[in-house]
Design a binder for these strands. Sequence first.
DNA 1: CGTTTTTTTGAAAGCGCTTTCATAATATCT
DNA 2: AGATATTATGAAAGCGCTTTCAAAAAAACG
Lengths: 360, 360
Amino acid sequence: MPQNSDESVINLFQKSNATLEDVAKASGVSLATASRCLNRPESVRADKRQRIQDAVEDLNYVPHGAARALASKRTWMIGAVLPSLDSSLFGGALDPFQKELAAAGYSVLIASSDYDPERERIHIRNLLESGVEALLLVGADRDPAVYRLIDAKQVPYVLSWVYEPNQEHAYAGFDNAGAATHLANYLLMLGHRRFGVMSGFNEGNDRAQLRLKGVQTALAAKSITLDPDSVYERKFSVEDGRDVFRLMMSMPEPPTAIICGAAPFAYGALFEAAEMGVAVPDEVSVAGFDDLWLAPHISPSLTAVRTPRREMGEHAARYLVSKLEGQRVAQLRAFETKLIVRNSTGPAPMPKKIDRPPTE
Amino acid sequence: MPQNSDESVINLFQKSNATLEDVAKASGVSLATASRCLNRPESVRADKRQRIQDAVEDLNYVPHGAARALASKRTWMIGAVLPSLDSSLFGGALDPFQKELAAAGYSVLIASSDYDPERERIHIRNLLESGVEALLLVGADRDPAVYRLIDAKQVPYVLSWVYEPNQEHAYAGFDNAGAATHLANYLLMLGHRRFGVMSGFNEGNDRAQLRLKGVQTALAAKSITLDPDSVYERKFSVEDGRDVFRLMMSMPEPPTAIICGAAPFAYGALFEAAEMGVAVPDEVSVAGFDDLWLAPHISPSLTAVRTPRREMGEHAARYLVSKLEGQRVAQLRAFETKLIVRNSTGPAPMPKKIDRPPTE
DNA sequence: CGTTTTTTTGAAAGCGCTTTCATAATATCT
DNA sequence: AGATATTATGAAAGCGCTTTCAAAAAAACG
């Protein structure tokens, strides 16, 4: 390895491999004092402080994170593993999460699990090895061994996107089932009795499970059972939303209301309806989850449950920070969802008597 | 700190503060051998390897990243600072970037700059302190001091979203100006002569600058100058797209074609057009950048330049990995953009003779 | 079998920083 | 001014790992 030891080389282009020891030497203090100067400047006398800071500048010194972490037992890193990075769905929580943490001096290590529990496990493990001091996860449903691993490392974590009133975990989420029930009740109130549900794949996705369950709860209260044939599990995509909408509408007795467990389904349904010439909401109502930016602009505008992405990200960050700083942490509550009623939902259509014998 | 030193405690709930030395002791080998066993298992004899691996399991051993990094001079971390994490725009590149890197054993530290150069600088510096081995950035236009800092640390980096044929930086991007020129030429070919442009804020955003320049180039070739009044700089949002569309259409001589420097503008324009009853493309054509998922579904479907987000993310990752592994790295080329023509653009409308004296 | 070559191993020296603990310097008080 | 209380400093001991280097063990050889 070629080593340029020409002392007169101009600073600007100097490799900055200076260590704190170099800084100490250059400013004529001990290593300990130099270290102190970086961490608690007020604890070192003004004249030396100046000399040290000058040396830092001169030598282009950049602290060595790993060394610092090893000695201080603080990495100032927090991990987040999300199902996907690609949509604005989780990004909407990640962005404030990161900002809040950055403000407190933490960096965030991310990974996307692609909705795959095994991949998530591996990422969590890697993050733990990297020394993250805390974790943000999505959902609660995972192999107990994963929680054991995290607990063994004594790493605080918060589960987003879900909420359960038990104290086993820290949640920064919302009540998926409740929100779904609320949405279904709204549709029931409009007179709907035949429902279709588009759900995400349930495996390893408790949010999807809970939403489905929430719908069933509401319907059960009216003694309506949800025919398994009218529940479709698909991966989240607009195309799947379109396909399923078409399938549903070609059933002998199509639903009068379609509940979409995620935004892409709802948009897909709306696009397909437009293309098929199905009137929304006159012939069929469509409602969804995740009130993304498009919802108010699309035509008809989409009735949807607003999920508190920003709140989850922010509060998760604050919770973890105060936990790490050893402050008393407020127990996290469920964040509120809100049903935003727009134009894609309306009263159930009158049964078409024309198609069938009037007596029946 | 209460310390449970009961040796008979069940493993499952044991804190895993075991160090490699503990593992070594438990399996009756030296620290060195234990270390080797983790890093190059084949270099240690099978029987000992088994004993060591068992001890790792038993003790719930998790390597200490910082210590490893300090000793080996490898952090296996790569940093990315993006203008925003919240949209699927940068997420669309980040996701494949992260996946590609994870496959090669790297973790990614992210930060969002919020389009603020100063904040970006700070994040870059923090990432460098954290010991990232490489960096992904967006755009090329930044204070030379930032590049000096990165170079001083000898950290390879790649600039995404832009491309310049010079060799000063590594690019994983595309030709913004060229794509804009292409788009403008297409509209010129359709007979358009009066243009409106919606641009992102140019400050610190070379992508926006280049796109604007690209449009101007195309128009200049036809001796059309772009009236400064018909260029609007806004932050990226659907609402701004709506506002600007309204402004443009209320000009005495509204443009017949509107070029949107980013997706939200175009959608905003389309929504507003629908609301105002302005026919697209009959009265005005609208074309945009960033062919996001919505483009084909919206009505009218959006003519847009597809930006190679996935390619950028993937190739940036591959480039950095091979650079770090010391392999010969292929010089990155510009990735292709593609103009996807849909229904939001059409021939320039005939001048309305009715409104004005026919002689003029 | 004794030798030479090859493969495995362990002792020990760091990696670059923080932090304790004792000492030196300075400030505060009779 | 001398005694005492504060504050600023430096020496040195790690933090948990990797990696060299030399020695030990095993394999291959004549």
